[in-house]
């Protein structure tokens, strides 16, 4: 019975997303044009950013799984996905991999639509969700043009959840458990550059595990940092929307970053 309910819930959301998605792009564009949020209050010396080299991405999904265990995400929720596409004709096919995490936009469409102020853009560049404030309305999921956000229905891979699924894990500056009393359940979740790891002086889990060493992470405010140097020649997904992502790309998909690529990016994990 409960399973059925969940499926219906999910269906409803999917169709909602579909409908709203059509108008979302236009809304984002216009709102970004109207409301110029300046950085003048920003006195931080650190602005995090990531550059992903698609020439070094082998589509192994080490990032996806490193993220899953780091943030203890439930079935079908992935802060990180790798979109895979095969095209071309024999004997000259192409196989392309595009890892997608939260873009940590400087003009984040998700922040504007949150009715309770649960989603915020921090001075360090990271877009966060305050699980205690989140009411689970999922407007932000619709607003995000990258499909980076998903809803935690409280499901687990195992019933009852196994020791790992029910153990303590860290996100933001907190420890959580997948327990009905905890705020992360029935709320929206997404990548936050493993901000709890940054606080420990560690890199995000996806960067640490990456088999191809395709990801470079660091301080974009430091012009000498490796990430800054790479960012100067990078491109962003759906940059026509004016979202100003802090997660950027270099490598083979560059020539296709226009419309075709935009349409390939799907909602959800």
């Amino acid at each position: 019975m409960e399973d059925k309910k969940l499926t219906r819930k999910k269906l409803l959301i999917t169709s909602l997303l579909g409908t709203l998605g059509l108008v979302a792009g236009e809304l984002i564009r216009s709102s970004n044009n109207i409301e110029e949020e300046s950085d003048k209050d920003d006195d931080s010396s650190v602005k995090y950013g990531m550059v992903i080299d698609l020439d070094r991405c082998i589509g192994c999904n080490a990032c996806t799984i490193a993220c899953k265990q780091e943030n203890n995400t439930p079935p079908d929720m992935n802060y990180n996905v790798v979109i895979e596409r095969e095209e071309g004709e024999f004997p000259h096919p192409k196989k392309k991999f595009l890892p997608r995490i939260c873009m940590q936009c400087d003009k984040p469409p998700c922040v504007k639509v949150c009715p309770v102020g649960a989603t915020k853009k921090l001075n360090n560049g990271i877009v966060t969700i305050d699980y205690e404030k989140c009411i689970g309305c999922r407007y932000c999921m619709t607003a995000c043009p990258y499909g980076a956000r998903s809803f935690d229905f409280g499901e687990n891979y195992n019933t009852p959840p196994n020791s790992f699924e029910s153990t303590t894990y860290a996100e933001y500056d907190q420890f959580y458990k997948r327990d009905k009393t905890m705020p992360a359940l029935n709320g929206v979740r997404k990548c936050h550059y493993c901000s709890h790891r940054l606080a420990e002086g560690k890199l995000p889990a996806c960067v640490t595990a990456c088999l191809g060493k395709a990801r470079t992470f660091g301080n974009l405010n430091d012009p000498e940092s490796e990430v800054s140097k790479l960012a100067s020649k990078s491109w962003s997904l759906k940059d026509n929307l004016g979202t100003k992502p802090r997660t950027m790309y270099i490598g083979e998909w560059k020539e296709e970053r226009g419309k075709r690529c935009v349409n390939q990016i799907v909602y959800g994990g």
């Binding site: 650190v46 360090n124 500056d173 901000s195």
Partner: peptide, 9 residues
């Protein structure tokens, strides 16, 4: 990062 990250968060 170690220092700044902590204070910022």
């Amino acid at each position: 990062t170690a220092a700044l990250g902590t204070s910022l968060l």
